[in-house]
Design a binder for these strands. Sequence first.
RNA 1: GGGCUGGUAGCUCAGUCCGGCAGAGCGUCUGGCUUUUAACCAGAUGGCCGGGGGUUCAAGUCCCUCCCAGCCCGCCA
Length: 551
Amino acid sequence: MTGANDDSSGSDDTGPREDHQAFWADAVADEIEARNPDEPITIKGGVSPSGVPHIGHLNEIMRGYFVAQALRDRGHAVEQVFTSDDKDRLRKMPRTLASLDWEIVGLDEVDAGALGENLGKPLTDVPDPFGCCSSFGAHQTELLRKSAEAMGVPIEIVSNTQLYAEGAFESVTRTVLERRERAREILADYQEKVDDSYVPFSPQCEACGHLTETVTAIDLNSETVDYVCESVEAGNRIIEGCGHEGTATLREGKLPWRFEWPAQWRVLGVDFEPFGKDHAEGSWPSGEEICRELLDTEPPVPMVYEWFTYNGSALSSSSGHVITVDEVLSVLEPEVFRYFFTKDPGRARDFDVRQLDQLVDEFDRFESVCFDRVDATDRERAVAERAYPMVVDSVREERIRIPYTFAAVLGMTDDEALRASMARRSGHLPDDAPEWVVEDALARVENARTWAVRTDNEYNYRLAESLPEISVSASEAAALDSLADLIEREHPDGETLQQQIYDTAREHGIEVGDFFELGYRLFLDQPQGPRLGPFLAAMDRAFVTGRLRRE
RNA sequence: GGGCUGGUAGCUCAGUCCGGCAGAGCGUCUGGCUUUUAACCAGAUGGCCGGGGGUUCAAGUCCCUCCCAGCCCGCCA
C-alpha cells in the first residue's frame, strides 16, 4: 500500500501527544507521518569520509534504519540514503587509516604523501594512500558501505561529488547565488564572520585543484563564477592557494556545508535525518532557515543523537581512538550490536568493551521479554515486541542463547563437537535441539572467545591440549587416580562430581584448595577456573580420566 | 561570554515528554552438606534520581539556580 493518510483530514484530529510511543523510532515515525510525505519516504544520513569510520558514524545509518523499519511496518515505502560528503576538502592529516580489510595503520605504513600533498582538494580528488581505490574519498566511502552491509542495513550510498558532477545541485546553487544577499543575512545570524564579501560557493581551482573561497565575479547568465585561488584557513591551518585566476561552472566547486546540507534535503527530498549533537546548535538551525527561506523547501524531521564514548573517552578519528564496526562484529553478533542502537538516542552512552557481557545479557533479556519468557514492565515489553523484529534477521522463538560469559568459557577449546557437548551437558542446550539452533547458539562462542582474549579477562581460559608439566606428590597421585576411577565407574553429573572432588581430597589427606588448584593446573594450566565438577562432567569422559591419570 | 544535550544503585541501563510507593539485570553479601573456586538455585543488600531553591496534596519527572561532562556560536590565537 502506498500514499497512506492522503487527504483524510478528519482522522488527523487526534493530538500529536495522543498516544505515547514506547519505542523512540515510532515517535519519530508519527512525526513523519503527520506531514503526509510523498512516497517513497526518504531517510538520510551522511558523513564527511575523512577519518577511520567508527561506531559513532553508524548512528547516521542505524538511527535512520529503525525509523525506516517503523514506517515500513506501517505500510509505507521507504528509501534510506546515505550521502558520503566526499566533495569536502581534505583539511588535515588523519593520524590513522583503515585498509579495506579494516586493518588500522599509521601514516608510515601508507603513501602519506598522497594525502599531505593534496590538502585542500576534495576527498575524491586525493589519491588513495593505499592505492586500491580511485581516490581517498572512494576508499573511505567503501569502508562506510562495508559498515552498513555488515550491519545488514540496506542503504543507497550517494556520492556528493557525483551529485555535483551530474549537476544535481546546479539549480540549488544557482538559487543560492541569485539570492546571496539573503543567504548572507540568514547565515550572519548564526556565524559572525559572514561579511559582505561572503559568497556561498567555493569554486575548485582549475590549476591546483583546491577548493577556494575568493570569488571575484558571479555571472548567472552563463552560470559561472570567477575566482582567485587564495590561501584558505581550514582546520586551524592555512592551506596555500596557487594564485591562479580562473572561471568555474556551478558544477566545478561546492556549496559551503551550511548550504550544502539543506541543498541535499531539497535535491534528495529528505523527510527525516538524524544528526549528532555537534550540528544541533550550528548547522541545523541555520539549515532549517535556509531550507525554508532560501530554497522554499520544508526541512526534514530532525533528530539529535548524543555521542558515544568508547571505553570511557570520546571517539576520535583524528586521534585514532576508534573502534570500527568490523572490530565490534568480531566480538558481538550483529543483532546484539543492532540492539545497542535501539536505545534512546538522546542519551550519552559508553561502549565499554570490558563490559560487553552486560550488553549481551541485556540483549538476551530483551529477546526473552519479547517472547514473554521473563517478567517485565509493560513498557519494556512494548519496546521489545516492537524493536526485536527489527533487530534480528528472522524471528524464531525456538532460538536458544548461551550466556556470553559461558560462551567465552566454551572458547577454551576449538573442538566444535566438544563445545556442543559441553553446552549440552551443562544444561545450556537441550539434547533434542535442532541443528540450526545448536549452530546459532554456538556462533556466539567465537565472538565471546575473541572478546575474552582481547580483554584478557577472567573468562580467557584455554584447555591445555597436552599434559602440563606438573609434579604431584604420592598422595595427590593416588587421589587423582581414585577420582579417575570414580568417574569411569559412576559417570557422575556435575554437582555429584563437585562433591566427589571434595571427598576425594579429604580421603587422601589433601587440602581441598590444593586439590582444586591441581585440577585447574591439569586441565587449564592455570591455578583457577570455573566450577570444577560441572566443568569436568561436561567434557569427554575418556579425556578427563586420561588427564587425571597424567597420561 | 551566550546557548544546547547529558548526569538515576558498585556496573550497564529503564522510568522524565504526560507529576502518583525508586525500578530491572548484573555485581556484592548470605544461604543452599561437614565444602573459597568465575557455568546452578534461593534470599538479602543496595539510592541526597549531580547540589540547592520553588510550584504542588504529591516532584526523578514541572519551574529557577548552581556544579560536572560533552558540544555549538562568539571571543582569543
